[in-house]
């Protein structure tokens, strides 16, 4: 046990307790949380800052809005329903197609309007929000996966998670939906996380749960060595999110759309730690490197250059 502890320390692995006490609590002031906890506010903020985000189709704030929503979505084939306060992917519903009055879920299951209505009502009444308080629901553009990434994902759209520490991208991974995760890109649902070499934007090893995987469990394609398109822009967008929110320890989730390129999906003030397994290296040592050597008054370009220089695989 002590041996394992020593090795984890050596490799600079960050544990939950330290993440919370030394990073989240220190760098993320409580008052800034609503900016990222409420996806609607994040979106509005991003739009105001001129950052690319998936197009917002509609917002449902009360039960009676649901009826209007049906009309608003009448000619939308595909869309995503998201509770503004949902955490960890809870309550996200992806509709990938329609057959008349039936909606096709990303999992392949079919639901009718009544079921969709029920889902939205649940979300409104706070079923998916952390404290159970009343919530708002966003309906937005369904991102079309980049063909390059299609090979290594099952149904859903992979998303890219970056940890940005005091404006410096510190670690990145791409999360690939699997059959197990119901086409969602959430690791705890069974999606595969694959580490990314920050300097080149090339994928490293994958991890599912806590196990290292080399091939995508559903498509069987090799996970390693894949080049992430638009990598420069992704790093830039992620680093800019720090300037936009002021959160020093930030998880930035992006997707790459076929048409629109990288889009900011959501931000997280308490990003998870599984990214370390996907990268096969600890986050703590990288954060310490930033604390010690980086000049936080650096410009955006300088910060990205620093990250690229130091955080290669």
């Amino acid at each position: 046990m002590l041996e394992v502890r020593r090795r984890l320390r050596e490799r600079g692995v960050l544990g939950i307790n330290r993440r919370n006490s030394a990073y989240v609590r220190l760098w993320n002031p409580r008052r800034l949380y609503p900016l990222v906890d409420d996806k609607l506010r994040t979106k509005e903020l991003a739009i105001a800052s001129g950052m690319p985000v998936p197009e917002l189709y509609a917002v449902v704030t009360a039960q009676h809005d649901v009826r209007g929503l049906r009309k608003a979505l009448a000619d939308r084939e595909q869309f995503v329903v998201k509770p503004a306060h949902g955490s960890g992917g809870n309550g996200i519903l992806i509709i990938i197609g329609r057959r008349g009055e039936l909606y096709l879920k990303s999992s392949g299951a079919v639901m009718d309007w009544a079921e969709l209505d029920h889902h939205i009502s649940n979300a409104l009444s706070g079923l998916y929000s952390l404290g159970g308080q009343r919530d708002r629901v966003l309906v937005e553009y369904f991102v079309q996966s980049e063909p390059e990434l299609e090979k290594i994902s099952y149904r859903g759209v992979p998303d890219i998670r970056l940890i940005v520490y005091r404006g410096f991208p510190a670690m990145a991974m791409i999360r690939l939906p699997t059959h197990l995760s119901d086409g969602k890109a959430n690791l705890h649902l069974g999606a595969v996380g694959v580490g990314i070499d920050l300097s080149q934007g090339v994928t490293l090893q994958g991890v599912q749960g806590t196990e290292v995987v080399v091939l995508h469990p559903d498509t069987g394609n090799c996970l390693e060595g894949l080049e992430i398109p638009h990598w420069d822009q992704i790093l830039k967008l992620a680093a800019e999110c720090f300037d936009m929110t002021g959160l020093g320890y930030l998880g930035v989730d992006l997707v790459i759309d076929q048409k629109h390129g990288p889009l900011i999906l959501e931000l997280n003030a308490r990003p998870g730690l599984a990214i370390q397994i996907a990268n096969g290296t600890g986050l703590h040592s990288r954060l310490e490197l930033i604390d010690e050597h980086a000049d936080t008054s650096d410009s955006l370009e300088e910060r990205i250059a620093f990250a690229r220089q130091h955080f290669a695989a």
């Binding site: 394992v4 502890r5 090795r7 984890l8 490799r11 692995v13 939950i16 919370n20 806590t210 370390q276």
Partner: peptide, 22 residues
């Protein structure tokens, strides 16, 4: 409340990172 060390079960969670050959 100020304990910032690893949680015991994190040894299991991060076992891929704590393995001998990693």
């Amino acid at each position: 409340g100020r304990y910032s060390g690893y949680r015991l079960l994190e040894f299991v969670r991060f076992r891929a990172l704590g393995a001998d050959d990693a």
